[in-house]
Simulated scan of single mutants.
Amino acid sequence: MIYKANEQRYSSMSYNKCGNSGLWLPAVSLGLWHNFGGTDCYENGLEIVKYAFDHGITHFDLANNYGPPAGSAEENFGRMLKKEFAPYRDEIIITSKAGHLMWDGPYGDGGSRKYIMASIDQTLKRLQTDYVDIFYSHRYDPNTPLDETLQALCDIVRQGKALYIGLSKYPIDKLLYAFNFLKNAGTPCLVYQDKYNMLARNVEEHHLHAVETHGTGFVAFSPLAQGMLTDKYLHGIPKGSRAERPEGFLKAEQITDKVITTVTRLQEIAQKRGQSTGQLALAWVLHHTAVTSVIIGARDVEQLKENMETLNHLSFTDDEIKKIEEILQA
């Protein structure tokens, strides 16, 4: 049976202007870092993507090395795009990135022109599409002249392989340099992506001000601190959770007594607002005026649905913001 998207899909989603551009991004975007690789269930991933698109999520965030194995998330999404979403390609924002280790040898990592140009071509083959909407430099590479990386990104846009440029996880001095370089090159940075959540607020000192000043959008990844800002770990580490897996990025030792105390106190505020703790955490990130969108992951449709319900209550009172700040500063 051919997939037909929900005709009311745009009625429940909020969309935010991405910096000074003409592009709007959904307040909630779907990240394919986990649960969409070759070792995961394709049908489950497809169900998640269909539900997301049916409810207004138009932005799907990938990277060349997402999997496992590396590249398989792009391959799976490309399969979905060709078989299910081809009629809707012009309604979808596909983003991908290059910068971390992708293949063996000296040319499969970093920010060199060799790696960046090879990566975009490989990405397009895996996705089975002629272009991506946004292509990111996934990280700053201190071993490559920054001009080389940035010029490669500009050339990718000029070649029609990407519509916009993005940057991710750059030190503030390199980010400011990149903003000026790209603007002068006629291919301004559309969006900057970095980690931002209640437990990781480093970008507040400089980066958020910088994107607002330069007319660049900001997309927050890990807004739930890989699940730490939900109720999941309040009573121990559940079997099968990210913190329980030895190969995972979230380590059990990160879930400290201080974190548990903080989340427990946040839970009280969330309950008074009629939200889960995770919904509160997502709304808090979106409350910042510089934030365009938050990237959420999902292991199944139910988890995605719960996170999307955040959109029903995004506003905060001044008293709520004050109490949250007191908890986070404790």
Rank of each mutant, 00 (worst) to 15 (best):
M1I: 01
K4Q: 08
K4F: 00
K4L: 02
Q8D: 13
Y10P: 00
S11D: 11
S11F: 01
S14T: 14
S14E: 15
Y15W: 07
K17L: 14
S21F: 06
A27G: 09
V28S: 08
S29I: 02
G31A: 02
G31E: 04
L32A: 08
T39V: 15
C41K: 13
E43A: 10
G45H: 08
V49G: 03
F53H: 04
H55E: 13
G56C: 02
T58S: 09
T58I: 15
T58W: 09
H59G: 04
H59L: 11
D61K: 11
L62W: 02
N64D: 11
Y66C: 10
P68Y: 02
A70F: 07
E74A: 15
N76F: 04
N76I: 01
R79K: 09
R79W: 00
M80I: 08
M80R: 05
K82P: 00
K83E: 08
E84D: 05
F85C: 00
D90H: 06
T95V: 15
K97H: 13
G105M: 05
G105K: 11
Y107A: 12
Y107I: 14
G108D: 04
D109A: 03
G111I: 12
R113D: 10
K114M: 07
K114I: 13
I116M: 15
M117F: 00
M117Y: 02
D121Y: 02
K125E: 09
L127A: 07
T129I: 01
V132P: 13
I134T: 15
S137C: 14
Y140I: 12
P142F: 05
Q151V: 12
A152T: 06
L153C: 09
C154Q: 01
D155Q: 11
I156C: 11
R158F: 07
G160H: 09
K161F: 03
G166N: 13
L167V: 03
I172P: 05
K174Y: 09
N180D: 12
K183S: 12
N184H: 09
V191H: 02
Q193N: 05
K195E: 14
M198K: 03
N202C: 13
V203C: 10
E205Y: 13
E205A: 14
H207M: 08
V211T: 13
E212A: 04
T216W: 07
P223Q: 04
P223R: 04
A225W: 03
Q226W: 10
M228S: 03
L234Q: 12
P238A: 14
K239Q: 04
K239P: 00
G240P: 00
S241A: 11
S241C: 06
S241L: 11
E244D: 12
E247W: 06
F249A: 13
L250N: 03
K251N: 06
A252T: 11
E253H: 10
E253T: 08
T256Y: 05
T261R: 13
T261H: 12
T262P: 10
V263T: 02
I269E: 09
Q271A: 14
K272A: 04
G274K: 14
T277A: 12
L282C: 05
H288P: 00
T292G: 10
S293D: 07
I295W: 01
I296K: 10
I296Q: 00
I296G: 01
G297P: 01
E306T: 14
E309D: 12
E309K: 01
E309A: 09
T310S: 06
N312Y: 12
L314M: 06
S315E: 15
T317S: 15
D319H: 06
K322T: 07
Q329I: 02
